[in-house]
């Protein structure tokens, strides 16, 4: 069985093709992506991002089919991101998926973006029943599976951790190429002084907006007077927000008695976060599972993987229900494949 997946909920548009064989093997046939990169100091706006996605969805689809050496008739289902994410980019990609569905006569499967990350991570790493830390530019959640739902144990109460990092990169005027988080990570490696920032864990939840305001003030006062370097601030910010994430992940492990942790989402490819999480997990005698940027960062393959699991257990989305939604919580999806 072969599924093609379309993802475009944020500034990346991706097309992936996955194959599940009857003996349970999974093959990655293609996973291509194009990122909308804005100039330093600027974020990506929904309208411009949608224009980017509309320009790239067709060439990427051709590229994916070519890479997989497939004809449209070889595909069994077309999967796309229903949400959560930015409205106009989501709809743009959904419209391409719907058109292909009707042209090719293939069923559509609407996928929750967060579920895509989780299933991709599980497939790539082989983690059985991990506590999932889902960290990206739009989402921050600690998730565990129980009774056919991915339950949210803890989450951000304001902005996502990746949003906090992205916006700090904008304050420092760091380039968005390849990604603002990557450039913060490189800067942090050269940081020498640690500045204490607010530490905002509220039970199982976390908050980042106050930390961002605080470090923004620090950057205007301390940077000019030479009290610290931009690298010191990158370092301090990473250490603080990652420590918070490690804390709530550890508590979730203790709550559900799991020894596995899986990190997914764009921030998940940060090696310092993986390092800190790895140390905590090792102390508890567990295992950490993480993936690299090909699978961590938004991609089409994750939508194909979650979609094919849904399709195999009977999910097909009728055309009239293929509308997109900016808000779509992870625990709204009934997990029929576990």
């Amino acid at each position: 069985m072969i599924a093609i997946g379309f993802e475009g909920s944020a500034n990346k548009i991706g097309v992936g093709i996955i194959k599940h064989t009857p003996d349970g093997k999974v093959e990655v046939l293609a996973n291509v992506r194009h990122t909308y990169i804005t100039p330093p100091g600027q974020g990506f706006l929904p309208r411009d991002t949608a224009v980017h996605h509309r320009a790239h969805v067709i060439p990427l689809t051709k590229q994916a089919l070519e890479k997989a050496s497939l004809k449209p008739s070889d595909v069994d289902c077309i999967c796309f991101t229903k949400g959560p994410g930015m409205g106009a980019p989501l709809v743009s990609v959904a419209i391409a998926a719907r058109t292909l569905s009707l042209l090719w006569g293939k069923p559509l499967v609407a996928v929750n973006h967060c579920i895509g990350h989780i299933e991709m991570g599980r497939m790539i790493t082989g983690a059985k029943n991990p506590v999932v830390l889902y960290v990206s530019g739009g989402n921050t959640q600690v998730i565990a599976y129980a009774e056919h739902r991915y339950r949210i144990f803890g989450e951000t109460i304001d902005i996502a951790v990746g949003n906090c990092l992205d916006r700090f990169a904008r304050i420092l005027n760091l380039p968005n190429d390849p990604s603002p988080g990557y450039n913060i990570e490189q800067g942090a490696k050269r940081g020498k002084k640690f500045f204490e920032l607010p530490y905002a864990v509220k039970g199982m939840d976390v908050s980042f907006s106050g930390i961002l305001s605080y470090i923004e003030t620090l950057s205007t006062t301390h940077l000019k007077t030479g009290k610290c370097t931009a690298e010191d601030l990158c370092f301090s910010l990473q250490e603080t927000v990652f420590a918070m994430l490690v804390e709530i992940t550890e508590r979730a492990m203790a709550h559900i008695g799991s020894s596995e942790v899986l990190i997914v989402g764009g921030v998940g490819c940060n090696e310092r976060l993986q390092d800190m999480m790895g140390k905590m997990v090792a102390q508890r005698g567990g295992y950490l599972f993480a993936t690299d940027e090909r699978f961590c960062i938004d991609n089409g393959l994750m939508i194909a993987q979650a979609g094919i699991l849904m399709f195999k257990t009977g999910h097909v989305t009728p055309l009239e229900d293929t509308w997109c939604t900016q808000r779509y919580r992870t625990d709204e999806v009934l997990v029929t494949w576990r």
């Binding site: 509309r54 969805v57 067709i58 689809t61 051709k62 449209p72 743009s92 419209i95 391409a96 058109t99 292909l100 042209l103 090719w104």
Partner: peptide, 9 residues
Amino acid sequence: LVVNTMEAF
């Protein structure tokens, strides 16, 4: 986008 997709596929 619909028209372009039809032209391409």
